[in-house]
Design a protein around this nucleic acid. Structure first.
Length: 498
DNA sequence: CTGAGTGATTTTCCTTTGCTGTCA
DNA sequence: ATGACAGCTTTGGAAAATCACTCA
């Protein structure tokens, strides 16, 4: 980690991206040059902001990948046997200890490991690998924690490597030039759980890496909702990285912990400042309600802040936006709010429709899960379709019963050839030339046709690959035979006339 | 030092079903 | 002939967030 950081420290983000665009802007207003220059120096330019964001992201991803790999190393049986070999016998019997005894045990183990390994800082030297570090009994802090985790895991205890990321922030230069770092083995939280922990603690973002990856920040931040969450700049990137590692089942201890996290969030004390309420994940003040938000129901009131009631937050969405989440508006529901809608330019101005300029918004309590259209008769039936002759499949659950989505390119032609009824699948909308257009990916067919279609598709694809191969093979053979014929001719000519 | 307030600037939100020319 | 496909052009206005600052 420290090596990563050194690398980042060397990059002076500010200096590299000053280009002519910013100068051009200042020159546009010669009469206000002074103002412009002070603004220019005080506020970072869009280019700088972009660069910082990229640096932030790359740093974040490097940390993520580094620790994921690091953690995988900790399961190696070689490391396990090495570490177990230096452990006194008294440490080996650790299963089924009471939480309190466990805490004592962990303290002793930690003390013992400290006596064996010398912890070095990583200032100048190239860090040693885990194996060399073990042999030389010299480790840096990450490795010390790693050894702890290895021992725990080889003794059959569940142990996480907890890593707190502190990627360079793009919000303030001080973070880029002086990243503060604090790594320590925290033993207090070990007391609370029968599970064993090793953690590497850092300033705000705390992540769990353990094959699967999990965000456990809530446990460590007192003001998670009011403060910490807002320091996150790349929530979408994080969600994406997590989704790559998602496990498809929830282990019992995870379930328990997830509940604990929810509980912790709920129990977090109300923010004490107005800014603390701004964009708080749970609470909202009526005066801060946004255009696409509403307070419903008006109970419970969580408390008072400056004489204002504190409510829970609920977002409103348009019918179309709900559909993208596979939810439909219940019958007879009336919009909570109405906002101005963006009416796209009609082809002819005269066709302008008057009723199109508002957008009704609904809350989640006014919706139900989307029910896809039914196949009328499975035996002879056709795939249902909407007024445009296709189907919305924004989410997997939006595929009608007895139907399936085959997302292969070119599969529609095969279905057509086999005379199988199908409809195009609309997976999202995209904007182009000021208008939105559906993006089609694959087709929807009756479930009973799936196998025959996929088989046919594979055959066609195989055939394509095969014929491409044969084409190339033919060319190669042709060239070789021409070359050899010509060589034979040359040889004969040489013999006859040389 | 902290948080409310401020103005300039950036981001988000809303929407929702082509056209044309080229080439195999 | 037919159909696949690339290139086209790149909404737009309002509201809210964000940033970098000031001030109490």
């Amino acid at each position: 980690m420290s090596s990563d950081e050194e690398v980042w420290d060397e990059i002076n983000v500010e200096d590299k991206i000053i280009n002519t665009d910013t100068l051009k802007d200042t020159n546009l207003h010669p009469e206000t040059v002074n103002v412009e220059i002070t603004n220019e120096t005080k506020r970072i330019s869009p280019q700088q902001r972009l660069m910082r964001r990229i640096v932030h992201r790359v740093h974040f991803m490097c940390l993520f990948v580094h620790y994921k790999k690091f953690n995988l190393q900790l399961n190696s049986s070689l490391h396990k046997s090495h570490l177990l070999s230096i452990l006194p016998e008294s440490f080996l019997n650790v299963k089924h200890l009471e939480p309190k005894k466990m805490a004592v045990y962990l303290k002793l183990l930690s003390r013992y490991l400290h006596s064996v390994f010398k912890i070095e800082s990583l200032d100048d030297e190239e860090p040693l690998g885990l194996l060399e570090a073990f042999q030389q009994r010299k480790v840096y802090e990450d490795q010390f924690v790693a050894f702890f985790v290895i021992i725990m895991r080889s003794l059959g205890l569940k142990c996480r490597l907890v890593v707190s990321f502190n990627p360079v922030s793009y919000k303030s230069t001080s973070h880029i030039t002086n990243p503060k770092k604090r790594i320590k083995l925290d033993e207090t939280s070990l007391m609370e759980y029968p599970l064993t922990w090793a953690e590497v603690l850092n300033e705000f973002d705390k992540r769990w890496i353990h094959g699967a990856v999990k965000d456990i920040t809530v446990r460590y931040c007192a003001y998670y909702g009011a403060r910490t969450v807002k320091l996150r700049t790349e929530e979408r990137l994080w969600d994406y990285m997590l989704s790559l590692n998602k496990k498809f089942y929830v282990k019992p201890e995870d379930k328990l912990e997830n509940e604990e996290f929810l509980e912790r969030q709920r129990n977090e004390t109300l923010p004490t400042t107005k800014t603390g309420f701004k964009n708080h994940p749970l609470y909202v003040l009526e005066s801060q309600i946004r255009q696409n938000q509403a307070i419903y129901p008006k109970t419970p009131v969580f408390g008072l802040f400056n004489g204002e009631s504190v409510y829970s937050r609920s977002n409103l969405k348009s019918k179309e936006a709900w559909l993208k989440e596979a939810r439909a508006i219940k019958d007879g529901e009336i919009a909570i709010k109405t906002v101005k809608a963006r009416t796209l330019k009609k082809k002819a101005a005269s066709e302008e429709l008057a009723d199109n300029d508002t957008c009704p918004l609904y809350g989640i309590w006014q919706t139900r899960p989307y029910v896809p259209p039914k196949v009328v008769d499975v035996n002879h039936g056709k795939v249902p379709r909407n007024e445009f002759g296709n189907l919305y499949v924004f989410r997997p659950e939006m595929v009608p019963d007895d139907c399936c989505h085959i997302p292969y390119k070119g599969i529609d032609k095969i279905a057509k050839k086999l005379d199988i009824d199908y409809v195009d699948a609309v997976v999202r909308f995209e904007f182009n030339r000021g208008r939105s257009f559906p993006v089609l990916e694959g087709i929807i067919v009756l479930e009973k046709h799936r196998d025959i279609l996929v088989e046919a598709y594979e055959q066609v694809e195989n055939h394509k690959v095969q014929s491409h191969f044969e084409e190339i093979q033919g060319k190669v053979i042709n060239r070789w035979s021409r070359l050899i014929k010509k060589l034979i001719i040359r040889d004969r000519v040489n013999k006859l006339y040389a």
